[in-house]
Design a binder for these strands. Sequence first.
DNA 1: CTGAAAGCGCTAACAA
DNA 2: TTGTTAGCGCTTTCAG
Lengths: 337, 337
Amino acid sequence: MSPARPTIHDVAARAGMSKSLVALALSGSPKVSEKSRVRIEQAAAELGYRPNAAARSLSIRRSRTIGVLILDLHNPVFAEILDGVQTEVRQHGFSTMLVTGGENPDLELAEIETLREFQVEGLILISHRLPTDVLRSIAAEIPTVVVTRDDIVAPGMDTVSNDDVAGARLAIDHLVGLGHERIVYVSGGDNPVSHLRATGYAEAMTDHGLTEQIRIVPGGLTDATGYRAAETAVELDPTALFVANDIAAIGAIAAVENAGLRVPEDISVIGYDGISLGALRRINLTTIGQPLAELGRRAAERILHRIANSGIESNRDYLSAELRVRGTTGPAAITPS
Amino acid sequence: MSPARPTIHDVAARAGMSKSLVALALSGSPKVSEKSRVRIEQAAAELGYRPNAAARSLSIRRSRTIGVLILDLHNPVFAEILDGVQTEVRQHGFSTMLVTGGENPDLELAEIETLREFQVEGLILISHRLPTDVLRSIAAEIPTVVVTRDDIVAPGMDTVSNDDVAGARLAIDHLVGLGHERIVYVSGGDNPVSHLRATGYAEAMTDHGLTEQIRIVPGGLTDATGYRAAETAVELDPTALFVANDIAAIGAIAAVENAGLRVPEDISVIGYDGISLGALRRINLTTIGQPLAELGRRAAERILHRIANSGIESNRDYLSAELRVRGTTGPAAITPS
DNA sequence: CTGAAAGCGCTAACAA
DNA sequence: TTGTTAGCGCTTTCAG
């Protein structure tokens, strides 16, 4: 490749000064004469000098890098969270190192290992599936914050998530406000998030005196599972469907339409997450929007704070979601039950 | 944090051997007695030893890391390409360091700089917007491969892209095969990709004897721009729309439907890219699918090869796209022109 | 202000 | 087989 990258030593030689002076000047120390500084900066520029992060990291014993694990880049939710993380982290002079688990949970652990070999100073785990005990031992060794999960408490670890119970209640309140009573929850399968949303659904239904109407059909968090679950749900003759997440909701709408029913005239559908995709005119999905970028920003804030103050107490952040009314919900059809 | 990470030195002490022996054993060298190896591995495990990538990188003068720049994580196209990159790179024992440019082009350059400070051995640039001369100087210093752009040639750099002209022809062939003649191209704005697709459109139209019917309306690559452009396109009374990319196509469909026309009964719509989103049942978009993961895989292959063989000639890969017929295209309506 | 020297954790000769 | 030694490039005392 190229004929050996210039080092601080080369810069010093060219500027006719010592290595350490160059180091000082380059780190913006005030105890370098203006004249020297200019000479040095010029020499560095001429040589195309670029500091070696590995060497610095080794020397100062800090990498100024935080590791981010994302379950799956394809789900837009994660991309949006990541955005918030990067913005915040960058502002504090840190870099991020991103890895994705892919299909395989073992890989997920291996990737975290890689991150740690690179000496990241903290870990932001976004929707991973690591078991509690593994997580616990990781958090014991390195500052960690978990995003979108609050089912784990461990020393050394913070959580940043959305209040799913409250969000689900928002959805039901909205539907009930539109006159709906036969509201079915299309679940997202057996995972913490889906369970919490089910809880919110049930609580809100009860609050509205609709305990009798509580009906949950098992589903999943994907387009296909949402589609299939909605096929079942439709047979329950609902006027509205509350679906565990946006992607599944989009699948559910397809199923409703395929069954010869219109959305929202015959059946209203509301999702959860607030992915930007739902805003596409063609989709126009009413949903409970999480503050995704803010979730990421907060996570970054927490990890940075934890890095700076080791040993602080675990913190749990809950950001609130908001109702975003678009085109897939409307007044309940006036049909006999 | 934790009480100082164990180093190779600690492992040696615990195993009662020298540093270098440990290094050898840990790198799986055959010139270490079985007995010593076991002792060392045990000591390492007990201590929870984890090699320091920065130190290794400094010592061997290689980072075994490749840097990836992605324009925008929100566009699913890039996430899918990235998937291919990561899979391939990982298989060769390399790690990836991912950065995103965000809104600001200057940031993009700064991020590349960061990547280089971390001593990445090669750069994969996915849909960046760096000017040619900048790119040229980067490629002169570090192995680089550019994905989804083939408008740049520079020594030290490979390109991996899709044959947009051929792909566009596929789209037109498909539509003409369905009996369409009044086919409008909804462009993606002023960028290389969009221009190439326009070229393919025009060529194919001419080949089919439809030169007279060539009509291009200016648009963009987003949902909103696709929507607006399609509003204009509809006034041209077309039977089919070929839209520059999938996201814009989804916007276009909304516009068509809003104009009181049905897709595909009144107007067929075909997109380009093959994002997984288009496969959602609710969208069901006919499109020209690029082999996205394969694009990423190939890029990784190229960069790895270039890293191993410095100074090789520039290579240009063109992967072919394929027609994916789904529900937004159908026979041309039999209406008078 | 400036320069010399030690050391971060690891690898890679080179001896023993 | 093993142990010694000398850096990789950078930061950081600690004397001049």
